[in-house]
């Protein structure tokens, strides 16, 4: 793969100002290498979501540039943008499944970018892709729910369906926006384990926003701390003292930990 030499994500001087003047991101510089498991921590409203959603351009940034495996997603348009997104899976806090469609169809959504439009319109997915989707469901332990409607599943099951969707999509990069925020602690760990599996077994790069310090400590390799739209900490989890988390979560007025 050509991407091995280039970083998976490279943000240079990224800023985002909302139309009402609120500053979402302030001069973000961030490099994430292939195969890393990065957790982004910070208070709600600190800009974690904005950062993630800027990476696959669900939101446009005001200035700066974001490169995905060396290609600029900031300047991509139309088909080129869709092909880049095709390589980035996303997991949402609210699962974002199509509630009235079957689980299988939801997982197949991960494959649609590979099909011409007329084929997807008539639901002509190849047998191979249906099998891929089914295998993805087995990996997350939901094979028996394949024809159930998505809204018949519990929250944790729905989130695992969305992980299967990403698995079927088979991207190099996964963005997880608060994947456990609507789940109970036990299901949260299951979902995080699934993400870890994607990272270790398939070598996918994972960038996850996490609320919970415990989960971040357990699963993250690298920590990025965000406060008020700025990166205030960046380091390996193993070298990160507890004080850093306290600092990020308790405001730590004025004495932000130096950026590494």
């Amino acid at each position: 793969m050509a991407a091995t030499t280039k970083p998976m994500i490279e943000c240079t001087k990224v800023s985002k100002v909302y139309p009402d003047g609120t500053v979402g991101l302030k001069n973000i510089n961030l490099k994430i290498a292939q195969g890393e498991f990065v957790v982004i921590v910070g208070l709600s409203g600190a800009g974690k979501s904005t950062l993630l959603r800027s990476i696959n351009r669900l939101q446009d940034i005001t200035s700066g540039e974001i490169l995905i495996a060396g290609e600029s997603i900031t300047s991509a348009r139309g088909k080129a943008l869709r092909l880049l997104r095709c390589n980035i899976g996303m997991i949402f806090q609210n699962f974002n499944l199509v509630k009235r469609s079957s689980v299988l169809r939801n997982v197949l959504t991960g494959r649609i970018a590979y099909y011409p439009t007329w084929k997807t319109t008539f639901n002509l997915f190849s047998k191979a892709d249906k099998q891929t989707a089914y295998e993805a469901l087995q990996q997350v332990g939901l094979a028996d729910k394949v024809y159930s409607r998505a809204d018949e599943l519990s929250g944790g099951q729905q989130q695992r369906v969305s992980i299967a969707r990403v698995l079927a999509q088979n991207p190099q990069l996964i963005l997880a926006d608060e994947p456990t925020a609507s789940l109970d602690p036990q299901t949260s760990r299951k979902v995080m384990n699934d993400l870890k599996m994607l990272n270790e077994k398939y070598g996918m790069t994972v960038v996850a926003n996490l609320h919970s310090v415990a989960l971040a400590r357990e699963f993250g390799q690298r920590v990025v701390g965000v406060r008020a739209g700025e990166i205030v900490y960046d380091g390996q989890m193993s070298d990160t003292p507890e004080a850093v988390f306290n600092d990020i979560y308790n405001g730590g007025v004025g004495k932000g930990v130096a950026q590494s």
């Binding site: 249906k130 099998q131 989707a133 089914y134 087995q138 332990g141 094979a143 394949v146 024809y147």
Partner: peptide, 16 residues
């Protein structure tokens, strides 16, 4: 979680 991940099944037919 009954099936081990290594032993993947083929997709059953959809019920009408």
């Amino acid at each position: 979680m009954t099936k081990p991940a290594t032993d993947l099944l083929t997709l059953p037919r959809k019920k009408l």
